[in-house]
Every structure is written in C-alpha cells, then in structure tokens.
Amino acid sequence: MNNILNIQNLKKTYHTKEKETIAVEDFSLSLADGEFVALVGPSGCGKSTILSILSGLEEKTDGTIIYQNKKMGYMLQTDALFEWLTILDNCLLGLKIKGELTDEKREYVISLLKKYGLGDFLNSYPSHLSGGMRQRVALIRTLAIKPDILLMDEPFSALDYQSRLAISDDVFHILKEEKKSLIMVTHDIAEAISMCTRVIVLSKRPCTIKKEFLISLTDFSTPIENRKAKEFSHYYEEIWKEIDHES
C-alpha cells in the first residue's frame, strides 16, 4: 500500500508563562490513500494539537512529517461560518484567500453544493440553515480547495444526536465519493468505529499511541448501517477499556 502521509515520532511542547506543557510525546502514523482513521483519547490529551500541526497552524517541536505533496483540509470543531457572507461566498473563502478563484473552481463549488442538497441556499445566509446543513457547508468550504486529506476535529460535537448520525452519514458519503482520506478526532467511540477502518487510542497527556484497532465489520456500508454490525459492540468495549477515563 502506498502511504500519502508519514508521521514519525511527532512531539509538541507548548510554552506558557506558568509552565511547559508536553502535549504530544510520541506520535507516529502512516496514512494510506483513501483511508479513514479516527483518533480517540481523553480530553486534553493532545488530539487537536496533532491536527493543528498537520494543518500547519502550529509548529512541531520534533519529529518528521512527510506529506508526499498532499494538501490538507482542516475542518474545525465549530462550523465558523461567516454570518455576513452567503453560503456560496463562505464556501469560496479559501479559494479567494489563496488567490485561486477561477470560474471553473466556482462551478465546482456550486456543483458540490447542489450535489449535497444545498442548491437552494447558495445565496442564503448561514443563519437560515440548520446545524447539520451548516456542517455540510463547512465541509464543502474545506473541500473547495481540493484537499487530499481531511482533518476533522470533533466535527459534529456541537450537534444533537439525530443530526450527528445523519451528518456523519453525509460526510462519509461525500468523502468516499470525492475520494478523500480522513483523519478524524472524536470522543464518540461509536462514531469512530462506524466511520473509520482504523481507530487509534491515545494515552492521556503527554500523548502517545496506546493501541491501534483495525476495524473490519461484516457488511461494511454506511455509518448508520455499520452500527448494526455484529462486531460493533465488541470493538466498542475493547476501545472503551483502552481509553484512560478520568476518575
């Protein structure tokens, strides 16, 4: 299998006035093309830090990252839509900033919006959209710059359970259809198992890899259906046991 991303012994130390925080002690990951990987671990263990480093928002302290010319698309914890821009303009933001906006790319973004049920809302403002739709807009805004690897940081945590199930199904389909790879941070074990083929359990801070699970479900299909697979509860229990729960 050819890897599109190689992370070796990543380390990150934060410095603040009060203290020095080792957020990530040792993290390595090889991502195959088209692979969906989930990172789970106790809160504050350094998951967001890993994604921030991968997307270039933070400098790494040590370790190597080999990108193989792959572009990262970062989807944040909140949708962070600009209320004063229309849905379309929100989605074009990345292209405008990078100075890459062409008619062709605009058409591509419009086609994505139409394809994923937002065709009637191109000129609406974010306040008119439901939480799930806003997340879809945020995803398309990320997809607009045609990234190869999506980094998602607890992307659905602000939504209620029903919308979460629906949007995780949507996102799964969109990413598979657009042939993207995914590194997703989540605290929802069920979400991790149902969407990803690999789940990495991280220790509490400073974070290292505690255990990796390769998920193989019979009749692997969509996230919602996957939750019914007979192996599901087994994986759930195993992963749950590995996570350092705060007592």
Binding site: G56, Y74, L76, T78, A80, F82, W84, L93, I97, K98
Partner: peptide, 29 residues
C-alpha cells in the same frame, strides 16, 4: 473575533491583511 474563525483563516494560509479585510472588519460592523 471568534478564535475559531481566525484559525480557519490561518488554515487557508491567510496573511494579516486578509484576516483584517475578510474577517476583522466585517465582523466588527
């Protein structure tokens, strides 16, 4: 300004001018 929005701009490699004009000004309307 919401720090997530700044993060978003930075994830698109926005420079300070762009953050100012695309985000800070309209956000302060």
């Amino acid at each position: 300004v919401d720090s997530q929005k700044i993060k978003l701009m930075k994830s698109f490699d926005a420079n300070k001018w762009q953050i100012c004009f695309y985000l800070i000004f309209p956000n302060s309307k």
